[in-house]
Every structure is written in C-alpha cells, then in structure tokens.
Design a binder for these strands. Structure first.
Lengths: 351, 351
DNA sequence: GTGAAAGCGCTAACAG
DNA sequence: CTGTTAGCGCTTTCAC
C-alpha cells in the first residue's frame, strides 16, 4: 500500500458522540458508556432516557475509539491465500460463523498468493492491531509467521510451519495422499503419477505422502511426479507433461481439486477417457468435485471445520485461556466418485 | 454479534509507541510522527536516528490511534452476500487490487445471504468507521442502504436499489437476459423456460428481462418461469419443476451459473441430454461455466471490473472529488459454449 | 527546524 | 447510582 497519499479528505459531517447522547439524555458521559456496554447498575429510568437519545440521534458507538482505550479491537485478522479456490470459501465460512458466535469481527485480506503481497497484507492487519491472526495456507516464509507470533496470537491453517509461538490446524497430508494412492492401487493401478502443487502450502507434504505411499505399496519403481500448481492451469500443464511419458500412467493423483480438473481437461483433449483410460484423484473435496459433471474422487479436508477450529484456537489464546501451542491435525477421508476406476487392460500410449 | 462478553483479556505486552521511538532517538514525539508520515522538513540526521530507533524497537504504527485522530480509517468496508459463489471471487479480487493501488485497506464481511445477518455485518463495518462501504449484491432492504448512504459513501454492486445517496455498478440484467433468450431463439427454440433467482439480488430484473425478450420475439405464449435460487439446489429444484410440464421446454435460461449447473444435473438425472434435448444458458460466466466438463453458455458479467469500478466510485466520494450519484451500468456479453444447440426435431415429453 | 500542548471518542478508575 | 478525571497512541496547531 502506498505509504501515504496527499489528498485531503473532508471529514464527513461529524457523527454524534457519546457526549451528545449524554447531553440529550441529561446524564453524564459515563452513564451513557455504561448503558452501551450493558453494564448493570443503571436506573431503568436513566437507561431508557439514554436509549431514547441514542435512537433519536442515530448514535453509533465508535469502535475505533473504544479499541484505542480497551487496547483491543475484537477483530480477528484473516489472510487468505486464494479467495478464488472454493476450498477457502468453506474455510472463510467456518471462520465467520464461529467468530460471530464468540463475539469477534473478522477482517479478511489476501495477497493473491504472492508472498510479498501476503506479507504486506499481514502487516496491514498488524497495524490495525487485530486481536489475533489467522493465516490460511499462507505462502510467506516461516520467519514472517514467527515474527507475527511474537506480537499476537497466530494460527496457521492448512500449512505446516516451523514457527513456534503459533498454533496450527492442518489435515494429515501424508495420510491424505496415502488414501489417494491406496485407493488407486486397490483398483489395480500401478503406474500412478502425481501432479504436485508447486510452491503452494502443503504441496510438498502431499508429494512426500505420495512418495511414501508408493514405496510402501511396492510401487517405488513407478513413481512419477511432475510440477503443477494449485490452479486449473497448473494441473493442465502437469498432465500435458505426463502425457509425454510412455507407457502412460493409468492414474493421476493431483495436488488439489482445481488442478485435478485441469488434468481432466488435458486428458480429454488428448482423447483419453476418464476413468476408462486414466483415473484421477483430487484433494480438498470442494464443491467443484461434487458437481455431477465432474464427479471427482477427492480427499476430503473439512474446510469449514478448519476455519471454526482456527477461530477457537485464536480466541483461547486471546482470552488467555491457553499459552502453550496447539497443533490440530485432522485425519482426511476419501470421497470416491466416478473419476476413478480400474485401469485399462492394455497399457495406453499416445500415438 | 453478542454485545459484550465478560472475559477479561490480558493486554498483550504493550508494543512500543511513538514515544518510545522518540526517547530512543532522543527527539520529540512530533518529529517521529513527521518521519513516519513522510513529511519533509526533517533533517537527514534526525530522520536517520528515528528510522534506526523504529527498526530497533520493532515499532509498528498504530492504525487505530491514527484513525481516531485523523477521523478516517483508510479502510473500505465490503459486505459480500455470497462468498461461495465464484462470481464474487472475481469481484473481491477486483476490489482488493484497486483498493490497494489507491492506498486503502479492505475489510470483508458477509451475512451469508441472510438479510438480518447482512444488516449486522454492515452495522459492524459502520461502527468501525470505515471510510466507505461496498455492498456486493446485498439482500438487505433499500432503507438500510439508504440510511448507510447518509452517513458515508456507499456503492452497491450487482443489484438495483432505489436508495439515493449511493452509487451503483450493475450490469444491464434486462439486456443480459435478452442476450440469452435471443441466442436460444436464434437457434430455433421457442419453448424457452426461465428458472429465476428467487429473492437474490438482480433476480427479479433478469426475470423481467426474460419476459420482455420473450414477448418481443413473439414467444409470449411460451413464457414459462419457475422459482429457483442463486444456488445449485435452487437450479436443481427449478428444473425438476419444469420437467413436470408437457411438452418439455427445449431450452432453459437459469438465473446464474450455479443454478444452471443444478439444472444440468436435474436434466441428466431425468435422462435428457444437453444440448440435444434441452439447451441451458447461465448468467455470470464464472470460472465454473468455463470448465471443460461443464462448458456452459453464459452471460458474461465482468466481476473483476465491477469490483474495480466500485472502489473507484467510492474513493472519488471519499476524497470529495464527486458528490453526485454515479450509476454505472455495464453491457453484458454472451459467451457461447456447448450447453446450447438447436432444439430437438421432435418435442420431448417425459414418460 | 523543533518541542509542548491539546484533543480525537471512548473506558475505567474513583470520589461523591 | 452518578459525575469527574485521566489517559489509550497518535496528529496537529502553534510557539520557540
């Protein structure tokens, strides 16, 4: 954000303050404050007078002033790496709902997956003195998280971090990748390839999970990974890369749902059928995967729960109920749909 | 939001203030303030001393305190009706980018399409004294918008409103619906049905656009509308309703993309092929419509541009460059994909 | 150039 | 129960 612009803005005609209310109700400032805060120990008569004055003046408490003196904002800052990925729609929804229940506002932000912008977004939240920070699959380096964690409660969602001082809510990506590979192997596949998530949060762990599962199942010789990204194009490019190998893999485990969808497109363009020729598994089980036309087998990640839990972790810390790190790791599950099936009888090779 | 909880929170160990910096740099408070604000007229020596002190103390300006005295926050409040609809992902992205360019922070909020919750979300933003408010397809009543507009600059996105005092950025829903109907009629369809968006923002206008276009094209006798919603289920239910009619419509214009996708599912479940038996058109041209597996003909709405423009309108008002209402209406376009084609030769009726 | 003083709107003591 | 008094951290006059 530009540090400062030189425009002069006219302060909107000043809104009524607590003092205006007090005068109108013919009571003291503090009495008004007490009414607003729901403090008991105000005579019903005065309370009513104040309430009326508030109504008439259309008075609205100034959260900024309150925050300054209370030295807290009741705002949870949330930096979301990718607002366009429907998975984060679930996460946001979970955050929003739980925060509201616990009496906090939520302030969202994004850096569009660009580390430098994400850093600026976080900084912006810190300057606002949010009470706590949720980082959803951030792409910033660990030291940034670490540093934030020394100033305020921080919880990292859906990404591993070495940062101490912060909590985290993740799913077991190793296990999730294992589920995907086992499912495919169980169907009879051996040439199972992986399109990874590039530099995305959790990408390397899912990749590692794939590698381990392949070795564990005795498929070490068939390991084949290509670079992708957590985007449709990433999956598309990754699949195109895979299509150059011979014989072709009979199954692809993509790093997330959108990239799996990109892979599906590449396969179709190459004249391959899914799942008859190539099976595909995604990750996140977003609403996209559930769409009938796509019907993608996917590893379920419970985004809403992640968001909800993240808020709970944060609020525990904010309200001083816990000061030791908490790291929730959830077990993913597999949702089987029609993008996976047994491998073809004869190995395919693109002409 | 619960008005107040009674937990006592320990103020995090207090962060350094401008005064700490001043002491460390052996200068006055105001000098530090000048440096931070980039005010010129500070000797290079002092400036350096201050910068060093800031660095060493890890000082971060307190935006809350600044806002209180400046009587503005440099925050744009954004209430998004539906964070899960990918269309709003585009809108949010446009808002975020443009706001950042213009030196504003963005604070997102949602009320999950529930009018009462949306109202609370807006109120929350107002208490925070955001400098301006963007309402993306809000479902609150006009008076709420009107009232907000009297206190601060407000711009309404993707919805008509009778509220004065506020700006708006919409697309021409009448024309958009017209494009959809004309496209279908051009393909030879006459029995073109409409699944509306229920109470969603813009739903009634699109419905009206459908009605007008049908009459204009001499298809008044074939008008057929059912109630839907801006959700997949809404479209699904609407289509199920349509499937009860005989003869079946040969084309469906759904109120938005997600509902069109729901309609596609209903058709498929009924054993009907798209577009051979029934053509389908959506609205918004979201990333979903572009997915190869879905390939939905859709009316393009340019969400990113809407967001960008909304921010520009707002900032113009905030910075006092304009005080007359501005209402941008964009012309939609039609993106033809493979969900539409000529009608079947023989009218279909479900057995 | 620089520093002292006032005050943004509110809460939180504390004395009446 | 009520009113007075201090600030919260910062910007902004206005003297020096």
């Amino acid at each position: 954000m530009p540090r400062r612009s030189n425009v002069k803005t006219q302060p909107s005609q000043s809104e009524p303050t607590i003092l205006d209310v007090a005068r109108k109700a013919r009571v003291s400032k503090s009495l008004v404050s007490m009414v607003i805060r729901g403090d008991d120990g105000v005579s019903p008569k005065n309370r009513e007078a104040v309430l009326n004055a508030i109504e008439e003046l259309n008075y609205r408490p100034n959260a900024i002033a309150r925050s300054l003196v209370e030295r807290r904002t009741r705002i949870l800052g949330v930096m979301i790496s990718d607002l366009r990925n429907p998975f984060f729609g679930d996460v946001v929804s979970g955050i929003q709902i739980r925060a509201e229940e616990l009496g906090y506002r939520v302030l969202f932000n994004t850096g569009d997956c660009v580390p430098k912008l994400e850093e600026a977004a976080i900084e912006s939240l810190l300057e606002l003195r949010v009470d706590g920070l949720i980082l959803a699959a951030p792409r910033v380096d660990d030291p940034i998280i670490e540093r934030a964690g020394r100033v305020l409660p921080v919880v990292v969602l859906n990404r591993d971090t070495s940062a101490t001082h912060s909590d985290s809510v993740t799913n077991d990506n190793i296990a999730g990748a294992g589920l995907a590979v086992e499912h495919l192997a169980g169907l009879g596949h051996t040439r199972i390839a992986h399109i990874d998530g590039g530099g995305g949060a959790g990408a390397s762990v899912r990749r590692e999970g794939y590698l381990r599962a392949m070795r564990r199942l005795g498929l070490g010789d068939h390991i084949l990974t290509v670079e992708g990204a957590f985007t449709e194009n990433g999956g598309y490019r990754g699949a195109c890369e895979l299509l150059k190998s011979a014989p072709l893999p009979t199954a692809i485990f993509a790093a997330n749902d959108i990239s799996a969808i990109g892979a599906l497109r590449a396969l179709e363009e190459a004249g391959l059928r899914t799942p008859a020729d190539v099976s595909v598994v995604g990750y996140d089980n977003t609403s996209l995967a559930a769409l009938h036309q796509i019907s993608l087998t996917s590893v379920q990640q419970f985004g809403t729960d992640n968001g909800r839990l993240g808020v709970e972790c944060l609020v525990e810390r904010i309200e001083g109920k816990r000061s030791t790190p908490r790291h929730e790791v959830h077990a993913p599950t597999l949702v089987v749909r029609s993008s996976t099936g047994p491998p073809p009888n004869e190995p395919k090779t693109l002409s």
